[in-house]
Design a protein around this nucleic acid. Structure first.
Lengths: 151, 151
DNA sequence: AATACAAACGATAATAATATGCTTTTTATA
DNA sequence: TATAAAAAGCATATTATTATCGTTTGTATT
C-alpha cells in the first residue's frame, strides 16, 4: 500500500502535481477498493469517512487528474455513471471486464488476451494500437449454476 | 432499405411493439446514417427533418426500445454522450471500433476477431459470453502519415 | 518570521443528458 | 365506428458532471 502511494506520488511529481492530503485519501480509497468499480459519488462517500471535509468537486478533479496521468482508467458500463478503476502498476493496457447480465457482477481479467488481435489490427487495418477497451457481457459461473437449478 | 424496415417491424411485432411513424422515421435515419455514430440529440435533429412534430423524449424512448431489442447498440466513447449504432442484420455480436486519438475518427470493423478469445473466456473463466464490446484507441493510418511528415 | 504567489480546496451554481408524469393522440380490434 | 391499450408529445424533474468564485494552504523568497 505505502509503496503504491509512493509510486503514485512520484508520478504526480514528475508532472509537477502534488499529492495533497485530499488526493492521498482518494488514492487510498481506490487502492482499498481496487476490486470494485466505484463511481465518483461512491468514492466521494468513502473518502469522506477518512477526510470528512473534502468536497465533491475535489474528488472529481482528482479523478480527472489521475485519469489524465493514466493512474486510473475511467470506464463506462452504460449505466450513466463513469467508474474509476486503478491501473495495475506498470500495466500498459487496460484490463478486461466480464459483466454478468443476470446479477450485474463485474469480474476483472488481468491477462492481455488481445495480443494477436492487435497484430491483425495493425497489419490489416494499418491502425497503430495504443490501448483498448474490452468488455464481455454474458452469464457468470454462479448464475449459470443458479439457472440450471431453477429449471 | 424497405426490406430492413420490414425486418425491424417484424422484430418489434414479435415482442408486441408497434412500428409507429415516429419510430419508423427514427429507424430510417439510423439506416441512412449507418456509418455514423450519432448521439440522441443528433438523431433527434435528423428525424425532425422528416417528422417535425416529433419530441425529444420520443426519440430517447425509441432508442431505448431499439436498444433493448438489440436492433441498435448503445455505445459510449467516453465523451459524455451515448451513441447509437445499428446492428448489421443477423449480426450476433457487436462490431468493433477503432478510435483515433489524433483526429477522433471512428472506424468500424465487422469481422469477429474475438472467437478465440471468447473460447478462452468460456473455458478458463467459466463465463458464458453473450456479447462483447471492443474498442481500440490509437492512431489511424492517415494520422500516422501526417505525423511522419510533420517530424 | 513576514510577505507574496500560485496551487488547490469547498461550496454552490450552471449545464447537459436523460427520465418521468400527465394528457392527448393514434392504433388495432371488436 | 366504438373502445381499450399503447405510444406520443410536452413540460418538467432528476442526475451526473463541470465551472465558478472566494478562501485556504503551502512554498519560496526576502
Amino acid at each position: 500500500m505505502e509503496h503504491r502511494i509512493e509510486s503514485i506520488k512520484k508520478q504526480l511529481h514528475a508532472q509537477s502535481y502534488k499529492l495533497t492530503p485530499q488526493r492521498e485519501a482518494t488514492v487510498r480509497v481506490l487502492i482499498e477498493r481496487e476490486q470494485d468499480h466505484l463511481s465518483a459519488e461512491d468514492i466521494y462517500l468513502l473518502v469522506k469517512e477518512k477526510a470528512p471535509e473534502i468536497g465533491l468537486a475535489t474528488v472529481y478533479r482528482t479523478l480527472e487528474l489521475l485519469s489524465e496521468l493514466k493512474i486510473v482508467d475511467k470506464i463506462n458500463f452504460g449505466d450513466g455513471v463513469s467508474r474509476y478503476d486503478l491501473r495495475k502498476e506498470g500495466a500498459e493496457h487496460f484490463h478486461h471486464h466480464l459483466i454478468c447480465i443476470e446479477c450485474g457482477s463485474v469480474e476483472e481479467i488481468m491477462e492481455d488476451l488481445l495480443e494477436d488481435v492487435e497484430k491483425v489490427i495493425e497489419k490489416d487495418w494499418g491502425f497503430q494500437v495504443k490501448d483498448h477497451r474490452l468488455t464481455f457481457h454474458g452469464v457468470c459461473r454462479q448464475c449459470q449454476k443458479a439457472i440450471v437449478k431453477s429449471t
